[in-house]
Amino acid sequence: MTTSNTTATESGQTPDVALTINGLAVNAHPGMSLVEAAWHGGVPQVTSVGCLEGVCGSCRVMLRRGKEVTVGLACQTFVEDNIEVVFMPPASAPQHHYEISDFKDGWDIHARFHKIFPEASRCRHCHGCDKACPKGITVENGVALAAAGRYREAGEAFFECVMCELCDAACPELIAPAHVGLFSRRVTAHFHLRPPNLIHRLEELRQERMETCRDEDNKK
């Protein structure tokens, strides 16, 4: 684990850390992220890497320390002695289908939600999603809020979600919490975000366009 500026050292001065990435022994400098260590060690086939700052959710890994295995993001996790790392395959396509344009108004949203996410009300409270989330989101609670129709609060719970979908992988009921969270955020905006300043400007522009059209018609 690094470190702050005060303990940083010029590379090479401190002993290397020995770890395993995708089954290969790798030596890395202390303070390196697991992604850096994979590059440093020339580990092949590491293509699930993206933003390198923890917001794209691509670099999903399983990690073993001693007897404990956890999941996380490789760009946000640092090398440790004897840690075992396996880069996970990309997440599978979601099993839930909806198009937000199909929703006519918001009054049937609860029925729609439970039709789209029938599993959401079957949470068995194993806390697997909470443990899996690299962002510390209270996933299980967020799902419960959504299942109770409290979409605004549910969406707020998922504010920092980076869609790594580790919670989806960790859910034994196949609830797909990340998508439940996103659904909650989307319907909140879709049905409730009606900003006066934007609406006013859109109307102004619409009238301008109509005037332009009239002018052109008159010219003809």
Binding site: M62, E68, V69, T70, V71, M88, R124, C126, H127, G128, K131, A132, L166, A169, A170, C171, P172, E173
Partner: peptide, 9 residues
């Protein structure tokens, strides 16, 4: 069962 990420994931 979902309790252990290691097993479920």
């Amino acid at each position: 069962c979902g309790q252990c990420n290691s097993c479920k994931v």
